[in-house]
Nucleic acid binder design. Structure first.
Length: 488
DNA sequence: AACACCTTGAT
DNA sequence: TCAAGGTGT
């Protein structure tokens, strides 16, 4: 039994259901929790701005929880291997443990660190703390990875997927503290909170409460009040029926095992399997995203379907800028992009609409959209972001067929029928009557005047005509479609 | 090898 | 009603 064990926290900023921490507490006299800030090791995907804002607060929350237990979180600035070695020397630790990561660059880094530490004579133990399934253990009949969701879901067992019970918070107590705590940086030293520019604080309106306690409150509130209506309300950005667990899951304040068991408990108490199944399928979509990232590690940058490597995308800098700023002239698109910028989060239905608009209406490469989301989402997750964008662009696993091009007007009318979502995020349109809220350019002059809207001045005219843009996208698709046929 | 199937749509 | 074509068994 090693005298002291380092627990290397990464995307698992919680105390409950933390196999690495539990192992360390069970198996050593002293436990030293550590978080290392080393963004340059992320292989071109360092945490984005909004993500860092969340991380800052989540680290504070974790440190508070640890202090309540007589422990504390050691904060250090990378590189990771050298930092761990320094901490081992300072604390006399004989072992290090952590949870497996799945981002390609971090996976390689972790393997290198594991080998180096073992050569030093340090015991290294890694645990599964992020997923419900074993990414190497789930294979198709022919031994390959899945590329279609439904067979993947069935293979896991659907609702009958066996999920181990989550672990309780380990009993730490003062007895597990080291004789002396090493030095730790203040979290402010990482510079994670965006600096206000021109008197405007970007993060001032960010949404959600980081930390393990808030994550559990959110989960319980969702199960108690929203789960039963989830199938109907999850697509409505105006009524907010989604779980909003994504940032908590991404940062590991909550584990998918905890979510799974909480929902299964809810099912047991009432015969409402269907609503729960729709939600748990979303949790398994997250598993699928990790399955894909693990087996196709090139996909954050390159399309999964290689015929799309030759797709005639257009690098339209002005179009990208207007999309990012929510100035496309399509209200549902602009509402989504402004919600994202102001709160660090966007409703999933709207994520699909804005992604379709960028890739189909503007023909801008999906990678530009993925990069923007990466920088602006508090839940930015390499696996989910990559899968989502490739799905929307039509070049990914189980993608929507390319010719399914979202119509931003009909999508707005269907999922924001009263225009409440648009009015909230595009306030310059707030006084427009509902029948014009999703297509202000069709409103008569006097209606616009009464609503205080002057197209081209207070709100932009559409930057593309959707009908023409749709034809252009289909023609562009035709070029790679012919190519793939010719090669076959 | 044949066959069923495939998250979220548009006209 | 239409829109391809691949995936997985």
């Amino acid at each position: 039994m090693p005298h002291t064990t380092l627990v290397w926290f990464r995307q698992d900023l919680r105390l409950a259901d933390h196999p690495a921490l539990t192992h360390a507490v069970d198996r050593s006299d002293a436990v030293v929790p550590v978080f290392i800030w080393a963004p340059e090791e992320a292989g071109g995907w360092p945490p984005g701005g909004a993500h860092r804002w969340w991380l800052h607060r989540s680290l504070q929350a974790l440190d508070r929880s640890l202090r309540d237990k007589g422990s504390r979180l050691m904060l250090r600035h990378g590189p990771s291997l050298e930092t761990l070695r320094t901490l081992i020397e300072e604390t006399g630790a004989g072992a290090v443990c952590w949870h497996t990561g799945y981002e390609p660059a971090l996976r390689e880094r972790d393997a290198r660190i594991r080998d180096a530490l073992r050569e030093d004579g340090t015991e290294v133990r890694t645990f599964e703390g992020r997923l419900l399934h074993d990414v190497d253990g789930v294979r198709t009949g022919s031994g390959g990875p899945y590329q279609v969701y439904t067979p993947f879901w069935r293979k896991l067992g659907g609702l009958d997927l066996p999920v181990e019970a989550p672990l309780p918070v380990p009993r730490m107590g003062e007895t597990k503290a080291p004789a002396a705590w090493p030095d730790s940086l203040p979290v402010e030293a990482f510079g994670l909170t965006p600096v206000a520019q021109d008197g405007v604080d970007w993060a001032g309106g960010f949404d959600g409460t980081p930390g393990e306690a808030a994550a559990h409150e959110r989960l319980q509130a969702f199960i108690d009040h929203s789960l039963i209506d989830y199938p109907d309300r999850r697509n409505r950005p105006d009524v907010d029926g989604s779980s909003r667990l994504s940032p908590h899951l991404h940062h590991g304040e909550l584990s998918p095992r905890q979510v799974w068991h909480a929902v299964q408990d809810w099912i047991r108490n009432r015969p409402m399997k269907d609503a729960a199944e729709v939600f748990l399928k979303e949790i398994v979509w997250r598993e699928f995203a990790y399955h894909l990232l693990h087996h196709f590690p090139h996909t954050p940058a390159e399309p999964l379907k290689d015929t799309f490597a030759a797709f005639p995308w257009e690098d339209d800098a002005d179009g990208l800028d207007r999309w990012q700023r929510g100035q496309t002239g399509y209200p549902i698109v602009d509402a989504g992009m402004r919600q994202l910028w102001q709160t660090g989060w966007m409703h999933n239905r709207v994520r699909m609409i804005v992604a379709s608009f960028l890739t189909k209406d503007l023909l801008i490469p999906w990678q530009r959209g993925a990069e923007w989301f990466w920088d602006t989402l508090v839940d930015g997750d390499l696996a989910s972001n990559t899968m989502g964008w490739q799905w929307a662009a039509g070049c990914g696993a189980d993608a929507q067929p390319f010719f399914r091009i979202f119509n931003p007007v009909s999508q707005g009318e269907r999922y924001d029928p009263d225009g409440a979502y648009v009015r909230r995020w595009v306030p310059e349109l707030a006084d427009l009557p509902t029948n014009y809220i999703h297509q202000p350019w069709t409103a008569p002059h006097d209606v616009l005047r009464r609503a205080g809207v002057e197209l081209g001045t207070t709100y932009p005219r559409p930057i593309v005509d959707h009908g023409q843009a749709r034809d252009r996208a289909l023609a562009a698709y035709e070029t790679v479609r012919q190519r793939s046929k010719g090669e076959a």
